[in-house]
Design a protein around this nucleic acid. Structure first.
Lengths: 346, 346
DNA sequence: GCGCATTCTGTAAACGGTTACATCCTAAGC
DNA sequence: GCTTAGGATGTAACCGTTTACAGAATGCGC
């Protein structure tokens, strides 16, 4: 490291300063707070920056200023349209306000999530975007100890003392189940996503169960299946339900991918949707309206949700007061995959 | 946090050193090169780290060591299954070797890509993963000036003096077209992705055209449609082709999403696939085998491709000699969506 | 022409690590 | 027993910025 003081100002802000004949402080000011330097200097500095091809060194900047204008996000997986869209939306918003995003994935593993959080904090992020409120017990302490603001996204829990933004999954699932109940169904099954480490999936199951209970309907254990996030698993679950002697006339699904699997399997098994079976999805992915039959589902404004999450943190960091719990409205989109049950089974 | 007894050692590595009664150098060594310190010291330091809740400050580390163990990646969009999977694979590999990934998106805009590259370089990334070889003319100079190694992923160009890893898109498209030609089709259309700023799409069109030319087949301009990456656009393109008085008997698509749109529209318009129309996709997404009819397509090993890209950079950075141009094999997967043309049109 | 309030700039001390080099210790070689 | 090689540890200079603080320049009223 010890270098004989041969040639100073080799690169960086000092090279720019030397070239423009000013101090490093002025260059820094011209960059971070242009109004603080005279127009003439600003021009000279801008030209020097151009000439030298200067790129500010973010780590040095972060080290010195203790702010990174970077947010971290930890999602279970990027290979899921809902998260991919959400991240894209968040990233777009952040770059529009001069922030960057550091993205990591946890694979639905709470220990990994905690480790990633530590990682991101060490990276100097100004705030953290988390998926849901199902975290490692040490995570909140970690965030508090390091004074890192955060927000839970994709859920709505107004009773918690920390921020969140998202739709009320319980209410949405309740609405989805209510839809088929209103159509006259009494025998309703559910194919949910894995509830383990996924409070979103859990809330949906809860809302579904509440709707059934409120209408005095039973849910035999064999009518509730949990599956991972693949078409194959969803099809297998559908096969299970359709082969039951005592099969449901409607199936509410934990998300659209699962619903798609159920549609495919129903068709393959010779059942006609919605004549023999009604299917409801959840998320309203792009292609859900293109399916045949098109899918009745719950529309969730993903883009808005994630952008709001970014807004919350950016505003908080700017010292503004903002809404801590923001609910994003869902809506039921009725399409072709649901209809009244066959009269004979009513 | 700590007492107002404003002395030294407020936090960071100095606090750990003080607590363990050693120098900061030893703590740093214990962290970066454990073998260099005695086991007893190592244990004392580990305990102190735990007690203080120390998290190494990455920016300071990067600043000081001039290495970040972080790679940057710039993709057009994250909201595309192929990229999402690739990024996930890359990220998984990198974390397995102690690296992190800084991900940004360019939205198919070369200027934005250049800006993102500048951004990432300023961030201190050790290397850069880029999509394809269609970049801003200033990008390579930027990378060279800053001595940042990079690799183009998703294409195969052994004649270039810089590294790449991917499938030969031209050859793959040639194979796809060859398949329907072998089936007896003579009237073949193509629905490609937008070629602008997308050399992958361009190479596929080129391979398709070569196959036609080699077989003495014509490609009327109206049989070649370019569409953005949405189902709606693909359906519209299909509508266009199917409504032609002089319509093709087979359609080769730039990717599976487009093929899916074509299938949907064909069905909606009363054409039966593959009886009236053969359809070939490209990418072999998860659900392509589930479609009805299941989709004949080109299988591309995305996961392997992106992992190899990471391997190349990590190895290069470690000083190892590695293969500069790596070809990833594609394969034609024949399913239900292709068949010989109707006899009458042969 | 002078004092004073305002800008505008420059100086230099952090920020939290790494690492070249110096120093200290221990144990083996003679 | 004395040297010395070599490993373990400490010291302190640096990495490239930001930002108090101080100093210089400018404009203004009198």
């Amino acid at each position: 490291m010890n270098r004989p003081s041969a040639k100073l100002t080799k690169q960086g802000i000092r090279a720019v300063a030397a070239r423009a004949g000013v101090s490093t402080a002025s260059v820094s000011r011209a960059l971070n707070n242009p109004d603080a330097v005279s127009p003439s200097l600003r021009a000279r500095i801008a030209q020097a920056i151009e000439a030298v091809g200067y790129i500010p060194h973010a780590p040095a900047r972060i080290l010195s200023s203790r702010r990174s204008r970077t947010l971290g996000a930890i999602v279970p997986t990027i290979d899921n349209t809902m998260f991919a869209r959400g991240i894209a939306s968040l990233q777009k918003y952040l770059s529009s306000v001069g922030y960057m995003l550091f993205l990591t994935t946890s694979g639905y593993d709470l220990d990994v999530e905690l480790q990633q959080a530590r990682n991101l904090i060490g990276r100097g992020v100004d705030g953290l975007v988390l998926r849901g409120d199902c975290h490692h017990e040490g995570l909140r302490k970690l965030l508090a100890d390091n004074a890192v603001p955060f927000i839970n996204v994709g859920i709505y829990q107004p009773d918690r003392p920390y921020p969140c933004v998202g739709t009320n999954n319980e209410a949405a699932a309740h609405r989805a189940a209510g839809h088929v109940i209103e159509l006259g169904h009494r025998r309703i099954g559910i194919v949910s996503a894995l509830q383990r480490n996924n409070d979103r999936a859990g809330a949906r199951v809860a809302g579904f169960r509440r709707a059934l209970a409120e209408n005095g309907l039973e849910l035999p254990p064999e009518w509730h299946v949990e599956v991972p996030y693949t078409l194959d698993d969803a099809r297998e679950a559908a096969r299970h339900l359709l082969n039951l002697k005592n099969r449901p006339t409607a199936v509410v699904c934990g998300n659209d991918v699962i619903a798609y699997g159920v549609l495919l399997e129903a068709e393959r098994s010779g059942f006609s949707v919605p004549r023999d079976l009604s299917v409801v999805g959840f998320d309203d992915l792009d292609w859900s309206r293109h399916l045949r039959p098109s899918l009745t589902t719950i529309h969730v404004p993903t883009d808005e949700t994630w952008q709001r999450a970014g807004e919350y943190l950016v505003r908080s960091l700017a010292g503004e007061q903002t809404i801590m719990h923001r609910e994003i409205d869902f809506s039921l989109v009725v399409r072709e995959s649901t209809a009244p049950p066959p009269a004979i089974l009513k």
